[in-house]
Design a protein around this nucleic acid. Structure first.
Length: 576
RNA sequence: CGGGGUGUAGCGCAGUUGGUAGCGCACCUGCCUUGGGAGCAGGGGGUCGCCAGUUCGAAUCUGGCCACCCCGACCA
């Protein structure tokens, strides 16, 4: 491609909408253009990079035996009603009505559609295992799209769905996909980590997220510093080692007047105790019906995802001050486990609280707390569970090492789904034993648009993007410094053509403009390799070859440039 | 949805007693220049987010609406 013909209009200034680094550079380098909130035009440079990502994904998915399909963007409401998600999915699913008054969804995901396809085509265990995937646009009407294509409403996604005859086979597929994702991440050049994840409302009980490590990531990863241990989990799922049960003699239960004291810090200071000696009781509304009390050690935060799972709820929210007053008889800040069950409130105790002796809790009465509170003697819970948020510095439950945290961007997610959809949608096959069975399913997604942004988030400097060779829009940028210098221009044309013929993805900046602009643009867009033909060096038979990520360039004899460049491109694309 | 903010040229912005719109970058033409977003000269480009109102007159004042951004809630 000759730059003078390319659709590239770089911006010197950053449009004010851009917040994150990748968003900024994607706009400035002319990869994307915003059309509306969370909706972007993908421009040639952006699309080229995205296509390289999808090519890698296709190769690896195909190598793993998956087969590509293309499902419609629209799906009929009937399918979603069958699975129950028409009602459950909420506003994130964009719905519309056609001229016949039929309802449709703009597909936010395709479990229903694929299950419908497979149940109509697959009747026998002989057709299994089956793994179908597509690379296609998804639409999710996000409440707040942000960071450009990192969290957009319309985005490219690779989603695969597997069908197996039993759980063992499904787990084998799961592991195969896990390995495939690992390969994909490596080929793209990511610094990444795979972590245990919460399955969420999609169901199933085995799931891993592939996290691209980046300061600006929206997700928090908890990981064990002991590399041999290797424990890593999404914050929502992370567990840690709980303290041993305390053994102190039980003190008498005492009601204490605690005027105007509502927070744990105030309470601990008032009583001369530490926050970890106290227990706070947070009231939740479960599935918009019943109230539940969650008791947490004073110094710890509640992990609402874990709590939701522990309660077996599909949705929880904090109770409002009015609801709390009405149900417990005390204003916010004075709730406690004693006599809470008697008020019809389900009581969940975190494991950290279960091990406490003589703790402090709210008195369920304005300005009163209890001290010397002991579980079993003073109150009885409905369940003990782990719903505490793990934090940096906690002890690893697996090896006893120290937990740390880092930020990441979720680029992919692998799920073991089980029979959630095959059951609700009656998707069955006939097994070897002549019995009709529901498929064991798995689902495996990669946010393709986001992958491009994540790579930029991980590879950049103050001048722009630093593409890894594998997904750079062009691998090499050939710059004749002065297009009017005929010898140099002639050489640039030659090397450009030779590289192109050799299958190198090359662009030549043939614009008749000042060299500064060419260098700035080259750095901004971030081509991994730059070949500069300048008059002074060329007269000595030398040409400059420079890697974007490195500061210094190499002066090469003009005759060896072709071989060297081809060699570098090839080497850079190898999996490290 | 709650809180905050912004809409003026492709991008960044200025525009107060209300008098019919400007700067930098980008773009076009010419000259000049050619190793880090050059220089000079000339030029094109605007329903000032939309609708209504006040006024002789509205980018500017009033009301309504819309879009977009940030924080939060939310996030298969």
């Amino acid at each position: 491609m000759k730059w003078s013909r390319a659709f590239i209009n770089t911006l010197r200034e950053t449009p004010k909408e851009a917040e994150s680094i990748s968003h900024k550079y994607m706009l400035r380098a002319c990869l994307i253009k915003k059309l509306g909130a969370g909706v972007y035009d993908l421009l040639p440079l952006g699309l080229k990079s995205l296509n390289k990502v999808t090519a890698i994904i296709r190769e690896e998915m195909n190598a793993a035996g998956a087969q590509e399909v293309l499902l419609p963007i629209l799906s009929p409401s009937e399918l979603w009603q069958e699975s129950g998600r028409w009602a459950k999915y909420g506003k994130e699913m964009m719905r519309m009505t056609d001229r016949h008054e039929n309802s449709w969804a703009l597909g936010p995901t395709h479990e229903e559609v694929i299950t419908d396809l497979v149940r109509s085509q697959v009747n026998s265990y002989k057709q299994l295992p089956l793994n179908l995937y597509q690379i296609q646009v998804k639409f999710r009407d996000e409440i707040r799209p942000r960071f450009g294509v990192m969290r957009s409403r319309e985005f490219m996604m690779k989603d695969a769905y597997s069908f197996d005859r039993d759980e063992a086979a499904a787990m084998a597929t799961y592991r195969l996909m896990f390995d495939t994702y690992t390969k994909i991440c490596k080929r793209i050049g990511f610094k990444f980590r795979s972590v245990d994840a919460d399955s969420g409302p999609i169901g199933g009980n085995c799931s891993s997220e592939f996290m691209v490590l980046a300061e600006t990531g929206e997700d928090t990863i908890i990981y064990c510093e002991n590399e041999k241990c290797g424990y890593a989990a999404n914050m929502e799922k992370a567990v840690f080692k709980k303290p041993e049960p305390q053994t102190a003699a039980e003190e008498p239960l005492t009601k204490v007047h605690t005027p105007n004291i509502r927070t744990v810090e105030e309470l601990a200071a008032f009583l001369g105790k530490k926050p970890e000696d106290t227990a706070k009781t947070i009231l939740y509304i479960v599935d918009e019906k019943k109230m539940a009390g969650a008791v947490m050690r004073g110094d710890r935060e509640i992990n609402e995802v874990k709590l939701k799972n522990a309660l077996g709820a599909s949705e929880i929210r904090l109770a409002t001050p009015d609801e709390i007053l009405e149900k417990t008889g005390a204003p916010v800040g004075f709730a406690g486990p004693i006599n809470l069950k008697e008020k019809g409130i389900r009581l969940a105790i975190d494991e950290t609280v279960a091990s406490l002796k003589n703790t402090v809790t709210g008195g369920n009465e304005l300005d009163y707390h209890y001290t010397g509170v002991n579980r079993g003697r003073d109150y009885q819970e409905n369940l003990v569970a782990d719903f505490a948020k793990a934090v940096k510095g906690d002890t690893c439950a697996k090896c006893g090492g120290k937990l740390n945290e880092q930020k990441g961007i979720e680029m992919g997610h692998v799920f073991y789904l089980g029979k959630k959809y095959s059951k609700s949608m009656q998707a069955k096959f006939l097994d070897e034993d002549g019995k009709s069975k529901e498929f064991e399913m798995g689902c495996f997604g990669i946010g393709v648009s986001r992958t491009v942004a994540a790579s930029i988030e991980q590879n950049n400097d103050e001048n722009g993007i630093i593409w890894p060779m594998a997904i750079a829009p062009y691998e090499v940028n050939v710059i004749p410094v002065n297009v009017k210098y005929e010898e140099g221009m002639k050489y640039a044309e030659e090397i450009y053509k030779k590289l192109k013929d050799a299958g190198i993805d090359v662009i030549m900046d043939d614009r008749d403009i000042s060299p500064g602009v060419k260098f700035k643009d080259s750095d901004l867009i971030g081509f991994p390799l730059r070949v500069v033909v300048g008059e002074k060096n060329f007269k000595d038979g030398k040409v400059e070859v420079k890697l974007r990520r490195e500061k210094d360039f190499a002066l090469m004899d003009k005759a060896e440039v072709f071989d060297r460049v081809v060699g570098i491109v090839k080497k850079e694309k190898e999996i490290k």
